[in-house]
């Protein structure tokens, strides 16, 4: 009898993790997965289950412009393809995401091969999904920080992809950056507005390039003509500067060693001694600007965006247990509740 009750309990728990895919237009809870190896840890599982995540926006691969000298190929090719070290969690919808570099997009634009590129992207997504038991696909997302000059190429690519996806009942969504809000919307079914990387991290006069509410408010003036989900940051990093010039992004989050670092009054840390961090040679006098996503700021931006855009769906960036461990369950739950209440 006890075994039966235990079995029922576990089954109920598994079944309760994730609410199944919401229908089109319904609010959903999502999270981006942006690493090159899909490996779900127990804490990742707990997060997915605990917050009843509906969708994982999973980066499948990037599309870059081939370097003929290295690869022997020309034109756009896939790169940094995701490897699968864990099975796909039950009850969570996977949304494949493909990031396209500007160089690749320019090549597609110039060559006029948007249709060919779209077909290749879809074929590969489809093969990866089938190979790893993902599906049926309901949505594919394209990510590209297109510019005014490459916009037409991007739109052509979106149109070509949409033509392939629509007969298959798959919707096409796109990421959207703040500066693109004022442009013509891309020809997609919906967008995910990236409310992070709001400022230029290369600039030395920026305090927190990850999320600046003032910058967000500058851009968010009113409604957007497409269904819009909100993508919010929950990550941190260090911006390594030397003599006021940007050098690299450091993923190390802890700079408490007082022999190596001296904390400033603001979010800047000064290097006291030459040493190597993540393969970079830091020199005495270098400055690391600690940037993070304080929950208060994220919440403020989330509220503001929801009010302006009427968005109810939230996608957090990104599924990384170390980064997420800085937030309490309630704080994260509140972000999703903001969106879905």
């Amino acid at each position: 009898m006890r075994k039966v009750l235990l079995f029922i309990g576990i089954s109920l728990l598994l079944l309760s993790c994730g609410r199944g895919r919401s229908g089109d237009g319904e609010a959903f809870r999502g999270i981006y997965y942006w690493k090159t190896d899909f490996r779900i840890t127990p804490s990742d599982s707990a997060f997915l289950c605990g917050h009843r995540i509906d969708r994982i926006y999973l980066r499948y691969f990037d599309v870059i412009l081939a370097n003929k000298a290295i690869t022997g190929h020309t034109g756009p090719i896939p790169s940094a393809t995701l490897t699968f070290s864990s099975p796909i969690p039950e009850g969570v919808e996977i949304v494949p995401v493909v990031f396209i570099t500007l160089e690749a997009l320019k090549d597609v634009t110039v060559s006029g091969k948007a249709g060919e590129c779209a077909a290749k992207i879809f074929t590969r997504i489809d093969a990866m999904s089938r190979a790893h038991g993902i599906g049926p696909l309901r949505e594919i997302q394209i990510d590209c920080d297109y510019t005014e000059r490459t916009r037409d190429g991007y739109f052509a690519l979106c149109n070509a992809l949409a033509a392939i996806l629509e007969p298959r009942g798959i919707s096409l969504t796109s990421t959207l950056r703040l500066h693109q809000l004022r442009d013509t919307p891309p020809p997609v079914d919906a967008v995910s507005l990236m409310l992070y990387n709001t400022d230029n991290f290369r600039r030395s006069d920026v305090d927190n390039s990850i999320l600046n509410p003032a910058t967000v408010k500058t851009y968010l003036k009113g409604n957007y003509p497409l269904p819009t989900s909100i993508a919010l940051p929950l990550y941190s990093w260090g911006i390594w500067m030397r003599d006021g010039s940007f050098h690299a992004i450091l993923h190390k989050s802890e700079y408490g060693d007082t022999l190596l670092y001296r904390a400033g009054e603001d979010n800047r840390v000064t290097v006291l001694k030459d040493h190597v961090v993540e393969g970079h040679n830091l020199l005495r006098g270098d400055v690391i600007r600690m940037e993070s996503s304080p929950i208060e700021t994220v919440s403020e931006v989330c509220r503001y965006a929801r009010e302006r855009l009427g968005s109810r769906s939230v996608i957090l960036y990104h599924l990384d247990s170390l980064g997420l461990s800085r937030y309490s369950f309630e704080q994260i739950e509140q972000l999703y509740e903001y969106a879905t209440d």
Binding site: I77, K120, R124
Partner: peptide
């Protein structure tokens, strides 16, 4: 073909 991804039934 850099775009090829192996699937058992292809």
């Amino acid at each position: 073909d850099p775009w090829y991804y192996p699937v058992s039934d292809d």
